[in-house]
Write a protein that binds this DNA or RNA. Structure first.
Lengths: 213, 213
DNA sequence: AATAAAAAGGGGAATTTTCCCCATGCAGAT
DNA sequence: ATCTGCATGGGGAAAATTCCCCTTTTTATT
């Protein structure tokens, strides 16, 4: 019997999923949580599941942070990320945070069942889509790093402001920096991601869950 | 026994929801559909549910179009919109398309149950959030129209391009218009929505499901 | 100790966006 | 018949963005 926990702020999805998982006699749902913080509390109170299905975009504490915390504090717990977005920034960030699998929310139910089983038995489950990214991560022994997107923390912080109606001058004031620095960061991000404009960056940030809608 | 159909391209959410609904003895799930087109086929083949839970953003045919089609072809079927976004553009468009209710995907499961029952019995179910918008729709007898967002079809079409990295000149070429026309449309949209920049428009379009991510 | 990457900042010019003004033609409603 | 909203298009100026070039300091890795 594999014990599973669900972490997602969409209660409807969560309880639906919970019902679905319970129909399989091989699984039990140990608990559900609204977000990363809620999950932490439940883990700390002694309830430790085998597998966690983890949403990425959640209030208070998101899936990346929660997964990193689990990775250090409960390394035996296997996290499967559950996301709406297939942007590679998401996937790679989540895998780097310690996730053992990555499923889209429009996956077939049968794939979820399989993912839980395989992750529990083998320690990982990679859907074909993810495998492509893994490949590009491994190829990247040291030669071409362009395959890894890798925005820095600072850059992602900046993206929050880029997705607003603030000018560079106004962003600079808020961050206590020079407008030229803001612009420099934008230019570097555009270079890395092969984008041209602020709108392109904003769309990328949303596709990758860096900026929440 | 109320018969329900689910229309959503997120299969995991859908089958989870299906399981949840089936646990209530007062409901049965007549069928599930991937999108509006799929729904049409199933309705045409003779399966007509009492209530439909309808996602908005779907491939091939979205929730607005599907709801309008139902409104004219199967007016007895009551549609409850199920969305991730609470932008008022979404809500009002969906209600105008003929939806009898509007639920967010992070609603409590109990609210879904209640929404299905009330919609079936009374013909509608408005969550408090929606009621506020209804009020502003009704207030708007003819005095202040600023409460209604109402972008035109043309404007929404334009928003697709605005969310790309194209310049106004390039958009104009694609649409066989003058750059000044594109700019004029942007200005009008910004006026209506009280926004200032293209980025603001793009964010609005995404929050309201006009541009898909 | 050396190299590389991230973060901060700048100059200057070209391009684009934004913000005012404006006009015309057309469709539907009163 | 007139009025309103929508789509179309324009002029001109100010502001912002984008695109090159460049420097310094800090931090991490080898």
């Amino acid at each position: 019997m594999i014990s599973v926990a669900l972490v997602d702020d969409h209660k409807l999805l969560r309880s639906g999923l919970s019902n679905f998982i319970k129909t399989d006699p091989g699984f039990q749902v140990l608990f559900e949580a609204d977000n990363g913080l809620d999950l932490q509390e439940k883990i700390k109170s002694g309830k430790v599941p085998d597998v966690i299905l983890m949403d990425i975009n959640m209030p208070l504490m998101d899936g990346y942070e929660a997964t990193r915390w689990l990775h250090t504090h409960q390394p035996k717990v296997k996290v499967i990320a559950l996301s709406m977005y297939d942007g590679e920034e998401c996937i790679i960030r989540m895998l780097r945070s310690g996730a053992r699998g990555y499923l889209l929310k429009d996956a077939e139910p049968a794939e979820l069942t399989r993912a839980i089983q395989e992750t529990h038995q083998n320690g990982f489950y990679y859907t074909p889509m993810v495998t492509r990214h893994i490949a590009s991560l491994i190829n990247d022994t040291e030669s071409d790093k362009k395959a890894t997107p890798g925005l820095t923390e600072r850059e992602m912080e900046l993206l929050q402001y880029m997705a607003s109606e603030l000018t560079y001058k106004e962003i600079a004031d808020k961050m206590f920096l020079s407008p030229k620095t803001i612009e420099g960061h934008r230019e570097k991000m555009c270079d890395k991601l092969q984008l041209k404009t602020r709108v392109g960056l904003v769309m990328y940030a949303i596709k990758n869950g860096i900026v929440k809608v």
